[in-house]
Design a protein around this nucleic acid. Sequence first.
DNA 1: GAACCCAAACTTTTT
DNA 2: GTTTGGGTTC
Length: 823
Amino acid sequence: MAGPDEDIPFFGEDSSAPSPASGGLAARAMAARNKTSVSAPYLEGLNPEQTRAVETIDGPVLVLAGAGTGKTRVLTTRIAHILATGKAYPSQILAVTFTNKAAREMKERIGVLVGGAVEGMPWLGTFHSIGVRLLRRHAELVGLRSDFTILDTDDQIRLLKQLIQAEGLDDKRWPARQFAMMIDGWKNKGFGPADIPEGDARAFANGKGRELYEAYQNRLKTLNACDFGDLLCHPIRIFKNHPDVLKEYHGKFRYVLVDEYQDTNTAQYLWLRLIAQGSHNVCCVGDDDQSIYGWRGAEVDNILRFEKDFPGAVVIRLERNYRSTAHILGAAAHLISHNEGRLGKTLFTDLADDDHDKVMVHAAWDSEEEARAVGEEIEQLQRRDHRLNDMAILVRASFQMREFEDRFVTLGLNYRVIGGPRFYERLEIRDAMAYFRVVCQPADDLAFERIVNTPKRGLGEAAIRQLHDYARARDIPLLKAASDLVMTEEMKPRPRKSLTDVVENFHRWSSLLDNTPHTELAEQILEESGYTAMWQNDRSADAPGRLDNLKELIRSMEDFESMRGFLEHVSLVMDAEQNEDLDAVSIMTLHSAKGLEFETVFLPGWEEGLFPHQRALDEGGRSGLEEERRLAYVGLTRAKMNCHIWFVSNRRIHGLWQSTIPSRFLDELPSEHADVAESETSYGGYGATGVGGGYGASRFDEAEPFSGSYQTPGWRRAQINRNEATRQNWGSRSGHAVERIGYGETDSGYGAGRTSVKNRTIEGELVARSVADEPSDFSIGDRVFHLKFGNGNVASIDGNKLTIDFDKAGQKRVLDNYVEKTK
DNA sequence: GAACCCAAACTTTTT
DNA sequence: GTTTGGGTTC
């Protein structure tokens, strides 16, 4: 990242008034100061609310920006305005976003506004990247050196596993993964080991939760490393314990801007509040209806109580929507109105209803059919000269993507998956990165450990243990220990020889670090270590792909000045750039779609259990449901012109077919803005299946808006059918919403109690669950009927999972709820 | 010490 | 259906 020159102001000296130097901005700035603000060119085309949000520069401001109301425009223009009026230098503005994508976009757009000189804004970035920047400057205040490394989740888990084992605990009973999540949760709240609630501390590892957390933090310190959470928590600690440092930043940051404020967690909130105490010029932009990261510790509360936290705050609502048709807005508005505790906004548009299609709801027999039909629809649009770039498929869960990918591959339809399996999380990339990390940072034990024996060098468990013991006894990093150890006679000849080679290699590479082009060095490392050869000799199907990825990795290093710079980038930005030139349909999750817009949006998988997601219901109760609804709202409001929702009656989950019922969200769409599509093709006689009695064209006929409970015909039918299909043991409705199910049963709430939770009722609906421990009504040899597979005989029984030999479909595993005994 | 085979767990979302 | 991890065997 940038060096110490970062604070050189964009024009002139920090202490003097801006002078017209280079670029269009400075000139415009001078001009702007002498005129009324309205005439500033960058303010042109803003509506009155937007203008107010841009110009209300002093004091706290909360901008409630609904979907598609020009939020990013307001933010960027506001920054341009601050600069142009000479209120602050670029280096005195702190602008935080959540994603790298958002930061990038903001940089670009400010660049356009002020004439390309965005390098002058060193403090525009994600919470995490700004955290790193702060921490590198003051690392010694929390016991780190400024060249600390940043661990990703994988490193973190491996480290925790070691610690758990070192405590003499069974790492199966106490999975490191789970503990990593707990730590994450604590750090999201800003809790150090001393701050965590007693209950939390006791919930893990026989009550050793706190000790383990502390051990973990200590270990990080000796490794000179920190995890993602620390990037927020350490700066907070520094600010709290060193008022002089905090004061420095108070003087520094004259204006603070926060994007997506509804997604801030407690730690981020604390961090912001500390900084904002200086100038009080804090502007938060957000939309409570788009808060979808509660599961990650985001507190919608932060936005709901902004006025309390920042007295005298000005609240500005942006409600004029520039994106979607009235039908789409109407459908989204009606859906989201089912949530309680909103700040309340009413979006409106000038676009007339009549020219546009309603939101269309489509039914399909199963997920294959769904993918096929969506594919057809896309091809039709394509024939009518719509570009694939203007279409997107937004799914709830990533496993849904595959079916579309498969289908599009056969169709030869271009698609791009956004936010799929991350490039930098692939095995070969991580291995290669581990080599680079050790070269740049010889004390990086985790990286060293990862690759000492990759490719295989005959350094097995015994040798590694020996190395470990040696290092721990002397309190030195593993690489140092290795280079010392091979000088002794302690090791057996063969591992000793291997280890000597490794040590020599690393020494050589390190010595080349500063005088060899880094891409060249990288290639050399992979070559000489035998890593490339390892994959070349690998005959498995994915080996060629991995080699390609390694090439791609080297190529992407070219964009950076040094290997260190590259490593820093990767640890913060996990995604690789996408090819924008290709005309392709986008496939992504609803979460990663936030902030984007498309001409046509497809929303598949609107079924109970998937959307709203079962787990959100189980673990989040009512608030979980509301978050799912916000997710649906986000999905709908991505669409500019057309929005197609799909639901299917059969979906394969965990490899077995389950019949599903339509999402309750469908019943929350108003009939004046949403319609059920006539089935264009022969979708297997949807109405004749007996499952739903058909959620056909009549579904909205008697729908009562704002009915509060799920009394619409489709819903009721679904419930009745569900009850009949699963006669046995689904609990009945118990009156009212169950708040926060899943919490309270244990101290932690992290995945605990999941197996004990069986029949969840949320606002009266009944949801099927897979239950492994109940005796089945079926016995081997029973003749059964299944809606998708037809007739067959039960071959074996595992709880409520049956293996059935179907007459036509062959052997399948299905849940017993979905077959009927025929004789 | 390494390769192979089988079982279990897993699938919400991400910096 | 897939992947990962563990256990067994050579």
